[in-house]
Amino acid sequence: MNPQVIKVACSNCNLRELCMPVGLSDQDMNRLDDLVATRKKVKRGATLFTNGEKFTSLYAIRTGFFKTCLATEDGRDQVTGFQMAGEIIGLDGIVNDHHTCDAVALEDAEVCVMPFENIEELSREVTALQSHVHKIMSREIVREHGVMLLLGSMRAEERLAAFLLNLVQRLHSRGFSQSELVLRMTREEIGSYLGLKLETVSRTFSKFVEDGLVEVKQRHVRILDTEGLQRIVNHQTACH
């Protein structure tokens, strides 16, 4: 692949601040451009990688939205996370050299493929990259831990409120609105992720609408009362 094309991928990419370490010298930045082997388009509904597949690369999501999921023993799909543009996907494969979930595109998407051996090699030479990779990993662990707490002790209202606040905060850090979001996932997928039945998710959304917390038009959600949602979540933490 033409190196110039790759250079555009990292050095001039508008997601650079999210994917790449900040404050690198031009020389190091040019080295980082070697990280991206190719860009890959993933059609809506297609998988980027599957459970058990050999781990070779991390993927920076340029555009689009993904869910990671596992098939449970009784054949259901358990959603384990949602990932959006500017986030890194594929970290699950590092531990055992195999992916431990499926990554499915919820809309047409494009990712930058970053072979892990390139990352390791460059990390040894560019220390800022090494600490950045560690930061990404620990952020992911903290997020997973937060989700486990969420599922462990929260009531349905608290789970959905925390989910919406988390989503809008992640979108906001990517330059989107602080109060409006389009849900790329179905109510069923939200339920699977939050450990709630589909009807519970729908009922809770309706309650939030009745209470004037949110406005919902199909997949468009406008948060009318951020503090109200935060109070629902904080009430839970105050009780523990």
Results as ranks from 00 to 15, higher is better:
Gln4Pro: 02
Val5Leu: 07
Lys7Phe: 07
Val8Lys: 11
Ala9Asn: 07
Leu18Gln: 11
Cys19His: 13
Asp26Glu: 15
Asp26Leu: 14
Asn30Trp: 13
Val36Ser: 03
Val36Asp: 00
Thr38Met: 04
Arg39Phe: 03
Lys41Gly: 05
Lys43Gln: 08
Arg44Met: 06
Thr47Leu: 04
Asn51Ser: 10
Ser57Glu: 12
Leu58Ala: 12
Tyr59Glu: 09
Ala60Ser: 05
Ala60Gln: 06
Ile61Asn: 01
Ile61Val: 06
Gly64Phe: 00
Glu73Asp: 04
Asp77Gln: 15
Gln83His: 14
Gly86Thr: 06
Gly90Pro: 01
Asp92Pro: 04
Asp92Trp: 06
Asp92Lys: 07
Ile94Ala: 12
Val104Met: 07
Ala105Tyr: 00
Ala105Thr: 02
Asp108Met: 01
Ala109Phe: 01
Val111Pro: 00
Leu122Phe: 08
Leu122His: 04
Ser123Tyr: 08
Glu125His: 15
Val126Lys: 09
Val126Met: 09
Val126Gln: 09
Ala128Thr: 11
His134Val: 13
Ile141Arg: 09
Glu144Gln: 14
His145Gln: 12
Met154Arg: 08
Ala156Lys: 11
Glu157Ile: 10
Ala161Met: 02
Phe163Trp: 07
Val168Tyr: 04
Leu171Gln: 15
Ser173Ala: 09
Gln178Ser: 14
Met185His: 03
Thr186Lys: 05
Arg187Gly: 10
Lys197Ser: 05
Glu199Ala: 12
Glu199Pro: 06
Glu199His: 13
Thr204Lys: 06
Gly212His: 07
Val221Ala: 09
Leu224Cys: 04
Thr226Asp: 07
Leu229Gly: 08
Val233Ala: 03
Val233Gly: 01
Val233Thr: 05
Asn234Trp: 05
Asn234Lys: 11
Thr237Met: 09
